[in-house]
């Protein structure tokens, strides 16, 4: 049995997440991955924005930075640039990273700065009560889309790949062991690494979309999350309503802080 208590701030429990929320499953997968890599807690910084997912760092016994809405990647860029030896993990959500923080998201990916980003995608603004987000599916109901959402959703992983991220994976909380592996790979990768985690929000999303029962939402994840291998063998019709999980992009690109260090070596005059 894995000893989660070694990494958490027990005094801050119970956590704020609702029953049936998937955020705790992501947290546990992250802690197992961190443990496997033997990351020094003193040298780890977790940075988050605002929202349910962004409360994760408060429970983890590392250096933690809970910033303003959407700005986690901007703060994290400052931390990592100033002290590149630190392991910087960013925790954010679909609204935090791709609505109010959309600019920081694409530019952190473009810069290919060595951050590991866990983006909890629950298709909704959970903390503020269920307003539609940039990933709310077309037609789904939200407190600000009472007649169904008119807008098409972002493909977050696709956005990150297009912007230049060197590692992009998508996982889900039903397949928690696989999620752990994806997070582990993301942490090992030098460069901007994104793990988009599909996770249920029964309270704010499920209730409005005929999935109020958390078990039903998990079963829905089980039925719609498709591995890369299986995805390749599926027809267009079979893929409808489903999503791919696994490593979507893993390429070698110059990493920003290493490039900067090289520049400093070239132009340095204070020696």
């Amino acid at each position: 049995m894995f000893d989660y208590l070694k990494y958490v701030r027990e005094e801050n429990f119970p956590h704020i997440w609702c029953s049936g929320c998937g955020d705790g499953i992501v947290l546990k997968a992250l802690l197992r991955a961190v443990d496997k890599l033997g990351i020094d807690r003193d040298e780890a910084v977790m940075v988050s924005g605002i929202g349910c997912s962004s409360r994760t760092p408060g429970y983890v016994d590392v250096n933690t930075l809970h910033t303003t809405h959407g700005r986690a990647l901007a703060f994290a860029t400052g931390v990592k640039s100033a002290k590149p030896h630190l392991t910087v993990i960013v925790v954010t959500g679909d609204g935090d990273a791709t609505a109010i923080g959309g600019n920081h998201f694409i530019h952190a990916a473009r810069r290919n700065i060595d951050l590991t980003v866990l983006l909890y995608n629950n298709y909704i603004y959970g903390m503020t009560g269920g307003q539609c987000s940039p990933t709310t599916p077309r037609g789904a109901r939200a407190s600000t889309a009472p007649f169904g959402n008119l807008e098409p959703p972002f493909n977050i992983s696709g956005l990150a790949i297009a912007a230049g991220a060197s590692f992009v994976a998508r996982g889900d909380v039903y397949n928690a062991k696989k999620l752990e592996t994806l997070i582990l790979k993301a942490l090992q990768k030098k460069g901007f690494s994104l793990v988009e985690v599909v996770t249920p929000c029964p309270t704010a999303y499920g209730r409005r979309n005929r999935m109020a029962n958390p078990v039903k939402m998990m079963e829905h994840l089980r039925d719609t999350a498709v591995s890369m291998e299986k995805w390749e063998s599926m027809s267009g019709e079979e893929r409808a309503g489903k999503f791919r999980t696994g490593v979507l992009c893993d390429v070698e690109r110059p990493e920003y802080t290493e490039e900067y260090a090289r520049l400093v070596e070239e132009v340095r005059t204070d020696r």
Partner: peptide
């Protein structure tokens, strides 16, 4: 370290992040 950020908000955020180190 010098960095040109994507916008003014990010420049302020990065400044704070760096200072915390």
């Amino acid at each position: 370290r010098f960095i040109q950020m994507e916008d003014e908000i990010a420049a302020m955020g990065a400044t704070i992040g760096a200072s915390l180190t």
